[in-house]
Design a protein around this nucleic acid. Structure first.
Lengths: 218, 218
DNA sequence: ATTTAAAAGAAAGGAATCCTAACTATAAAG
DNA sequence: CTTTATAGTTAGGATTCCTTTCTTTTAAAT
């Protein structure tokens, strides 16, 4: 029978097994991990806002610009960005309108589908990216501090977790090897049919430019 | 010399070592990890919004209610909540006003400091928490799927990472053993002076109710 | 004791997120 | 050729979230 920490809100409580109940975290390591991941997710918010203030843009605007900088045109449209950042299309549409008004992007209409267009960085947009692309650097610096062994193990778990989350419809977007059509398991080891080589530990990608979704039948 | 994935925005580019450049991720495992953590941080956004829509509140409103449910009164004031969720005090003040208007909380003015008050859940507020406290359950379910060995290792790294982030001023709030005044290192193992026992792996807490900040002199 | 500085919270004002619902136009499927 | 799905926008509204300014109160310094 779990209890609440002393001094918490209502007396007779009934949902003590919450991940966010510190007492529960003591009984269940998964809860501790989820709570920890939640704290780390705050870090991105903090770091992004810092840069945002610096250049006078909003977090989502910066995220869009950085995404454009490092991904191929076919992913840089309103629909995909909405999925990527888990917001609705009108939200992206709004942000894109602002970016356009500030002349940070250019639109290129698709030749195959006249309704759609893809975004590219303007010169000014590129400058903004240059000032903000490293927003997560303070976090990376701390991650760098761990041993290679720890990092490989951590990466392995994260990669699998992201794939699981995607398979269960929680993360709508991912571009990991595990979900790619070029991926196969050969004799117990991961293999990429595009690169034609085994994927050992670090070789697994979370955001592969060559990613193409596997149509899974499960 | 790093390059950009084919088809990316501007030709001659100069900040390819970005964590969010997939090519960089291939060269540097820390970048992969940071990119992975970023994806996972999206999960909280998604799951929180789901519940938010369900009960007709905003994400920050729900976060505040859940926090109140599981933490002692002295942490449930405007100033602390602002630090906890990394927003300004006016932002919390706004959200609290909404919660108050909806009769989901009650205010108790401090006896020692007449400027300050702490928040408690009203009956209605408790009902909302009952419907939302498990918002991260879909994530936890996937975490549960890993082996105990993986989980312990993962938890160990996360705990240290959060402490590092806090020490470097990136995470303003944490309540881990590592930063607590009851914590000491005795003969190479972690020890809690309050519980008077060794802290082995899972015993380390990320959100300890008894946490009191250690005044560090480094 | 008195001044000064710091802290708790609110109020005002404004930009932007972010939603839903309704809409246009194009593309794909039957 | 009709139907259905998709790309993106518009409109409207609630809320976040910021900065700046302000009041009150507490703490610290002289």
């Amino acid at each position: 029978m779990l209890t609440l920490p002393v001094g918490c809100s209502p007396a007779g409580f009934f949902m003590n097994e919450s991940t966010f109940n510190p007492e529960q975290q003591q009984k269940d390591i998964s809860s501790k991990i989820v709570a920890g991941l939640e704290r780390i997710s705050e870090v991105f918010k903090v770091l992004l806002w810092e840069k945002a203030k610096l250049v006078g843009l909003s977090p989502i605007q910066i995220q869009i610009l950085i995404f454009i900088a490092f991904h191929k045109q076919e992913l840089c449209n309103v629909s995909h960005l909405a999925k990527e950042f888990n917001v609705t299309k009108p939200t992206i549409s709004d942000a894109v309108r602002m970016l356009d008004k500030k002349s940070l992007i250019t639109k290129t209409f698709s030749s195959s589908d006249s309704r759609s267009y893809s975004l590219s960085l303007s010169e000014k947009g590129t400058e903004i990216v240059a000032q903000t692309y490293d927003f997560s650097e303070p976090l990376k610096k701390q991650v760098d501090d761990f041993s290679t062994k720890d990092l490989i193990q951590l990466f392995d778990v994260l990669g699998q977790l992201i794939y699981k989350l995607n398979r269960h419809g929680i993360l709508s977007v991912q571009r990991t090897c595990y979900g790619c059509k070029f991926y196969t398991k050969r004799a117990g080891t991961d293999y990429c049919n595009l690169l034609e080589k085994d994927l050992v530990g670090e070789d697994i990608r979370l955001d592969c430019p060559e990613f193409e979704e596997r149509i899974s039948h499960s």
